[in-house]
Amino acid sequence: MSRRGSTLPTRAHWLLLGLALLFSLVLFLYLLECAPQTDGNASLPGAVGESYSREYYQALLQEQEEHYQTRAASLKRQIAQLKQELQEVSEKMKSLQERRNVGARGIGYHGNGEQAPGDLLGFLHSQIEKAEVSVGAKLPSEYSLVPFESFTLMKVFQLEMGLTRHPEEKPVRKDKRDELVEVIEAGLEVLNNPDEEDEQENEEGPLGEKLIFNENDFIEGYYRTERDKGTQYELFFKKADLMEYRHVTLFRPFGPLMKVQSDVVDISRAIINIIMPLAQRTEAFTQFMQNFRDVCIHQDKRIHLTVVYFGKEGLSEVKSILESVTRL
């Protein structure tokens, strides 16, 4: 009984060992079957791989270079085309400027109508005659009157204030600035190169030299536009050492500027009228009369003052102030 008991564990031990070896053999065969197969014809990294890569990059660089050359040629053609168009535009602008100068000399500032067509010149003169430039027109009421607006070198004083709501402003629009500058230059052209028909006296300065006006001699101007006729300009120039103004009237009948007249305004004996509205404020009026006496009465003596007083309170005091000034 003891031998049989010892034999059974020994057999079980060898049986387990055999099963383990069999399982290991099956696992090894399975791994051999499932392992990936290597391609014997695959190219290994070496000289052949490097030669293929160099050719590829050379072809890529060649393609990029051809693309850039094509782009550069296209840009050169565009630049040449733009230069040609710019030259054509410059020639057109030059020809238009020459025509404009010829038109200005023909029917503009100098009043020489030989170079202008007769029909056009007649139409322009008819527009001047229709407008209230030389002779006034009868109007049904004051609402039909077209008011003037004044301007200087830097400012425009307008009655219709528009969106800005400012009666005094700089010309914002470029076309308006160019228009006023052109008008002032036209007035200077009339003064510095007068026609033979213009009988202007005192064309020489104090030292006998010829008077040459510039834009600094421009004092102020007035203009108004009648929608069916054109724009009228009244320009005033003055030298600092002369007691006279130069008055130039221009008209633009929806065409080139035309000179209407040019005359001399002598102010050596002119009387300046001042109309002053007043209501109370007698202390400020007293100070004003002192300045008026020192500047206007003692120095100029060619100023007439009219005081329009509103109300009765303080009227006697204002009268006494005026009487005291007149007695001095």
Rank of each mutant, 00 (worst) to 15 (best):
E209F: 03
Q127F: 02
D195R: 09
N202I: 10
K239T: 04
Y109T: 11
E234K: 11
F213R: 02
A116F: 05
V172E: 14
E132S: 15
H166Q: 09
I219M: 13
I107W: 12
D228S: 15
M154W: 09
A240N: 10
L211R: 10
E149L: 02
L235N: 01
K174R: 13
D178C: 07
K155D: 11
E197P: 06
N192D: 00
E201H: 05
K155L: 07
L159H: 04
L242Q: 10
V172T: 13
G122R: 03
E169Q: 12
K176P: 05
L242I: 07
E129V: 13
I128P: 01
G111I: 02
E168V: 15
S126W: 06
G208V: 00
E196L: 12
P171M: 05
K238Q: 11
A116W: 15
S141N: 09
Y233I: 02
V181D: 14
K238R: 08
Y109I: 14
T231G: 02
Y143V: 07
E160V: 13
T225I: 14
E189F: 02
Q127E: 06
S141Q: 02
S144Q: 06
M161R: 09
L242V: 03
F236A: 10
E179F: 13
Y109P: 07
T225W: 01
K130E: 15
Y143I: 09
L120P: 07
G205W: 05
E169I: 06
G221W: 00
A240L: 08
F157I: 14
G162T: 07
M243H: 08
P171V: 01
V181A: 14
L207R: 05
Y143L: 15
I219C: 10
P140G: 00
N112K: 03
R165I: 05
E169A: 14
E196G: 15
G221Y: 00
H110Q: 13
Q232A: 08
R173S: 12
F237G: 00
